[in-house]
Design a protein around this nucleic acid. Sequence first.
DNA 1: CGTAAAAGCAAACACTCGTTTGGTATCGCA
DNA 2: TGCGATACCAAACGAGTGTTTGCTTTTACG
Lengths: 208, 208
Amino acid sequence: MARASSLRRLPATRPVRAARSDNRLPEVLAQAARAFRAKGYDAASIRDIVGAIDMLPGSLYYHFPSKEALLLAVYAEGVRRFSEAVSAAIAASAAPWARLEAACIAHLETLLQESDFAQVVVRVRPSDVPAIAAQLVALRDGYEALFTRLVQALPLARGVDRRSLRLMLLGALNWSQTWYRGGRDDPRSIARQFVALLRQQLDSERRS
Amino acid sequence: MARASSLRRLPATRPVRAARSDNRLPEVLAQAARAFRAKGYDAASIRDIVGAIDMLPGSLYYHFPSKEALLLAVYAEGVRRFSEAVSAAIAASAAPWARLEAACIAHLETLLQESDFAQVVVRVRPSDVPAIAAQLVALRDGYEALFTRLVQALPLARGVDRRSLRLMLLGALNWSQTWYRGGRDDPRSIARQFVALLRQQLDSERRS
DNA sequence: CGTAAAAGCAAACACTCGTTTGGTATCGCA
DNA sequence: TGCGATACCAAACGAGTGTTTGCTTTTACG
């Protein structure tokens, strides 16, 4: 059986028949992502979300059993977009540093341009939604494991802590959401700058 | 006239007489910082804050005209603590890199240990509180100017973008609030690691 | 076509939110 | 000691919150 678009398995009430074509679930998700990104989880109300697509508050509960479940769906989609973008980006290169740079560029372009879903992942803190905090963290950790492997592959001088390097890089990238303004900066060059600042230790003082 | 403790000028209703000794404003501020840090601005309710010190919701409005004004007071105090810690720390050293490292250590220790007030500065986004967003940004910018000067003083190879360096460093430091767990890590060594990862370009290829 | 499921409407529910208003102990000070 | 400002209490306000319940329209499918 085909895996389908992955959005189709999100609703909690499983249809036994195919979804109808006038299904507005995609619009709901898009608007939810937009609202969560702009206002954060608590400040974004159900009425904000559904009102933007002329739907009534109660109607949302046909698609999701709770506001938390809605956030989880948006968050999962955000993580999926990050993973997809980065996976595709690193496939092109073989050299460890080039792969890391490609990953950072893809991460930042997804975060700062393709927007909304990805921004929610960086914006919303799992601890803000205790009921699903563990699931949010698990999703994010799954994605960041990609970077763990990329950093692991780097040829570094001994004594360089790879965990610190990963945390520093991802932290700097994610924090850019705070100060980034389109037009003035662009994601690609920011990511390149950041990687370049770390690349000073030359490759392979030891085994690859 | 003495400058006083700087908390005394916070209330919006200016007393013409000295404050009474049973004044619980300090406790209100401390609890507000605690709540804003733990839950964020929107999720932390007035009742959460005053309830923790057995005060009634309405009583807060003797000290502050609005919830936003309360946040502004907490935020300003947080920025003040950052500034004070970092200013004191960089006074001890003269060498540019040592000063930057000292600043980062002080920043991170303030953020991750002395806690609450400082954490609010990193946790709460100005855009979450539009009415005072501009003032929050101004406060933070004033503090971060400290780092701009520290980075400016570094002897760097030409072609190294100082703005990127500053943004990367502060971003990585601030993001640590997300993953830091006391006991496992400690702020001092984290800050040292981060600075070390950037220090590879040797001092003064050019003028000091 | 007819029918069952899908998708959403309409209206309310109980609750919490920030805030206001009027009153009152209590303290600092002359 | 008395007076007035200080620092609250007590109780409510209207608006907004996530969510539920019963009903209705629309669609895909046999």
